[in-house]
Amino acid sequence: MNPTDFESVISVKELDFFYGQSQALFDINMEVPKHQVTAFIGPSGCGKSTFLRCFNRMNDLVGDVSITGSLILDDYIDINHKDQDPIQLRRRIGMIFQKSNPFPKSIYENVVYGLRIAGQGKKSVLNEVVETSLKKAALWDEVKDRLHTSAMGLSGGQMQRLCIARAIAVNPEILLMDEPCSALDPKSTARIEELILDLRGDYTIIIVTHNMQQASRVSDYTAFFFEGKLIEFGETGQIFTKPSLKQTEDYITGRFG
């Protein structure tokens, strides 16, 4: 069930995940295709968000969790190894959250935040990064005249695009998106989806979504999760038109979930 006709960037092997005593993910094996968009779909509580957070070790922040198995980045970096510095990792793997979470600073400072904490203070570099990142995030034209005003004055959709700009400003290879459009109106959602399609090719994108149409619109590959297990993984077209498993078909056609 694992398609292998693509270049893989992260390979997940026998991943088990526990919140305290209860197991949330069971024996996940998959390859994440490089420079493609992969969508994780599945009903609420199926573990897709938990799985996403394994890629940049955000689960570390939760406290009582344990994880076995491995996620190998670029064939040699073991993401889950206890000596692996999550700080270095998170600079390579950016994340966009369900709720847009800009810092209560200016738009400019939001974008350069990641660079500043990494020690980059050169004005010329920062200015350039702000422009390119905001352009990539399709926000430049809307905010170029008010870069130094508070990011809190932006609309919900603009805030989410600012968060995307902020994430790509540190030049990551992978972008994790955890239901990035669930709090946005259809118009803003469409803009974000457009943006995802634009970013594809430069970045490896993993997007968790509840919205089946969205998954079919933006992703190249789709993984269906159910009750902590990876049920089916394949090319989006194939998953949505002729899924190989009955369970996947039932979910996609809306018979449950």
Binding site: R90, N101, V170
Partner: peptide, 17 residues
């Protein structure tokens, strides 16, 4: 809000930063 903290951490900031 923890969203904002997580936003910072996800950008590679340390807890102290």
């Amino acid at each position: 809000p923890s969203d904002v903290r997580h936003g910072s951490l996800a950008l590679g900031a340390t807890k102290f930063q």
